[in-house]
Every structure is written in C-alpha cells, then in structure tokens.
C-alpha cells in the first residue's frame, strides 16, 4: 500500500475522534505508521494499544479526541463551548476556504476542545488542543474557549488540566489573535487568584504565542518526552544567530534542565501522575 495513502486514510479516520480501535476495520488495523524517530513501520494496532507511543519511546501526535480518550475516565467527558466556530474576521486571503476544509477533514470546529471530565475519578475542567487543526494555532475562538473554560472553572472552583500543542497565534486573524494571549491570561490569573489549581501538559510542539501565555502559567507544568517547546521557531533562530543550534535545543529535556518545567512524564504514567496531582491539590481548611 502506498505510504501516503495510508497516512491520509488513517489520519482522516483518526481525526474523527471516538474510540478508534473499536471502529477500525481489519484493513486499518493492519496498516502502519512510520515512526519519525526510529523509522520503523509501526502497525496502527500497536500505535493504538500502546498510547500512541513507538517501542523506541517516540510519542506520536494525538488529535484532541484521542487524547481525551487516553487521559480521562471512560464516558466522563462532557464537552463545553463546542458550538463556537471561527469566522474570517479580517477577510484574510484563503482563510475561509482553509477553515472549511479543515473543519471537514477533522470533524472539529476549532483547534481546542474544552469540557469537564474525570481523571481516575478526579473531576476537572479540561482543554485539549489539536495539532491537526491548523497546527493548533490560537485565533479568537481558541482564545474565547480557553477563557470561558477558566471562567467556568473559577465559578465552579474546579482545577483546570490543559494539554497544549500549538504553532502559536493564528496569523490569519492578525492582531485579534495576539490579543487572545492577554485575554486567556486574564482568565488564568483570576482562576489562580481564587486559589484554584492549573496543571498543564506541554506536548509536541508547543511554541509561539501559546508558550508565551497560558502554556507557561501552570502551577505545575508537565511535558511529554521529546516534545519541542519554545518561543521562537528553530529555523528563525538559526537564521537570526547564524549558528547551528545545540543538540536537543528546545526539547522537553532541555527545558527541564533549564528550569522551565516541573517534570517530564511518559504517556504510560500520565493519567496516574495527573490524577495524583489533582488529588494533592484538593482545597483544605487549615486546622
């Protein structure tokens, strides 16, 4: 089978969300995905059953629904603000068409999915970004949904768990995208000032305006192994400083050693680590 076809097919199937392995046909189960780290052809059945991790340790990207399935208790997720969709506010060239086609191919209305869920029984407000929706870029609706989620969590005294993946602010919405960094941060700050817990998991890649706002605002910041996390893109930096970048630059391990994240957590341990941290942050009265 031609590799491209497999990717296209598997992507479309994967991005529709839901519990893929149940819905997968025999043919799809037998298909493979190339691991960008070790080059091995990994059967999709193995990808799915191993939390989207290759035996070499490489974490395949997950769409928002797959990650929600992976992280939360079965049937506990209740979506919020799913009715909001993006419009072409600035009349930006080709943006309308791009939005239409991406909505169709992903079955999503935007690059973030929000709601409430339980993680090993721990109730939380949850946002999960989607790398397959315009590279998880933040426009006005992504900003609005995340802001609303933090406001909802503040009102309900719920902790927020967020999974970031983003190329940064969405340039097709110009300055309005940039302003979402401030808007979301305002809501994060109010949530925090009210004594609520915010845990963020940085996944590959988390860059630009998302790194420079709510991705770095967590009380506890976790990251997936090998995830690229940074402000500026590696190529832009290389062009600016005209030097080769050091090995491992902007990887999760690099951020850990430079003191910008709390812990790198492999997928196999994520659910347990997140639920333990949620439990440890139950509000307590002083004796």
């Amino acid at each position: 089978m031609p590799i491209n076809w497999i990717f296209k097919k598997s992507r479309n199937e994967l991005e529709k969300g839901g519990r893929i392995p149940d819905a997968a046909t025999q043919e799809e189960v037998e298909m493979t995905q190339t691991c960008p780290a070790c080059g091995r052809e990994v059967p999709l059945s193995e990808v799915w059953s191993n939390n989207f991790v290759c035996s070499c340790g490489h974490c395949f990207r997950m769409n928002a629904r797959q990650r929600i399935d992976f992280l939360t208790d079965k049937d506990s997720f209740e979506e919020l603000f799913g009715e909001l969709y993006s419009t072409d506010v600035l009349d930006f060239p080709n943006y309308k068409e791009k939005l239409e086609s991406i909505c169709q191919s992903t079955g999503e209305t935007e690059a973030v999915v929000c709601g409430t869920a339980k993680i090993n029984g721990e109730l939380c407000a949850l946002f999960v970004m989607n790398p397959y929706f315009m590279m998880g870029s933040m426009g006005t609706v992504v900003g609005e949904k995340i802001t609303r989620l933090f406001e909802y969590a503040t009102e309900s005294s719920l902790p927020v768990v967020g999974c970031t993946v983003s190329g940064g602010a969405r340039m097709q919405e110009g300055i309005l995208s940039l302003m979402q960094m401030a808007k979301t941060s305002g809501a994060v700050k109010r949530h925090s000032d009210a004594g609520n817990f915010y845990l963020v998991i940085l996944t590959d890649p988390t860059t630009g305006g998302v790194t420079a706002s709510f991705a770095m605002d967590g009380d506890i910041i976790l990251a997936e192994p090998g995830a690229t996390i940074g402000f500026a893109g590696a190529r832009v930096i290389e062009q600016t400083v005209r030097k080769k970048l050091p090995a491992g630059f902007q990887k999760a391990e690099f951020l850990l050693s430079h003191g910008f994240i709390d812990k790198i957590v492999p997928r196999s341990e994520q659910k347990k680590v997140v639920s333990s941290l949620l439990e440890l942050h139950h509000r307590r009265k002083r004796a």
């Binding site: 770095m216 940074g230 402000f231 500026a232 893109g233 832009v236 930096i237 600016t240 400083v241 030097k243 970048l245 050091p246 630059f249 902007q250 430079h258 003191g259 910008f260």
Partner: peptide, 9 residues
C-alpha cells in the same frame, strides 16, 4: 529570537 533567549525562557 536567540539561543540564550530560549535558554533563559
């Protein structure tokens, strides 16, 4: 956009 800038967050 520099190496040190990223190293220092």
């Amino acid at each position: 956009c520099g190496i040190g800038a990223e190293e220092r967050g």
